[in-house]
C-alpha cells in the first residue's frame, strides 16, 4: 500500500501497482493523453470521456462484473463492459457492501 503521492506537474496518477484505474489530478477532457506509472511500467492512455479532478478512468478494457482496483484493493465491479480510457464512476460501477445480502 506504499505510495509516492507527490503529484507535481502530472495530470493523472495511479496509486498502487495492482490498480486498474488512474486518477485525474486536474479536470481532463476527452482526447487528453495520460501518462502514468504502474509499478515499473509507464502506460499511456487516451481518454474516451471528460474526467473531472479526482475522478477515475479505466487503464484497461473491463468486461461486465470485473473488479475495479484502487489503493490495491477492490472498490467495486463494473455494471457493463468498459473500454480503456473511459470515466469510471457510479454509472458503470457498483458496490454491494452495506446494501445487499
Amino acid at each position: 500500500m506504499e505510495q509516492e503521492t507527490t503529484a507535481g506537474e502530472k495530470n493523472s496518477l495511479v496509486i498502487d501497482a495492482r490498480d486498474n484505474v488512474g486518477i485525474a489530478l486536474t479536470d481532463l477532457k476527452v482526447g487528453d493523453m495520460c501518462l502514468v506509472s504502474i509499478g515499473n511500467k509507464v502506460v499511456q492512455v487516451e481518454l474516451r470521456d471528460d474526467v473531472a479532478f479526482g475522478h477515475k478512468f479505466a487503464l484497461k478494457t473491463f468486461a461486465k462484473d470485473e473488479s475495479v482496483y484502487k489503493y490495491g484493493e477492490e472498490i467495486g465491479k463494473t455494471t457493463s463492459s468498459v473500454p480503456i480510457g473511459s470515466w469510471i464512476h457510479t454509472h458503470n460501477m457498483y458496490c454491494d457492501r452495506g446494501l445487499k445480502e
Binding site: K56, H89, M93, G98
Partner: peptide
Amino acid sequence: NHLISKGNYDGGLSSVVEKSLG
C-alpha cells in the same frame, strides 16, 4: 439508500469501499 453523500460522489468517490480505503 446511499451510503456516501452527493458531495463524495461529486468529488470522485464511487463506492463506500473506495471512501473507506481512504
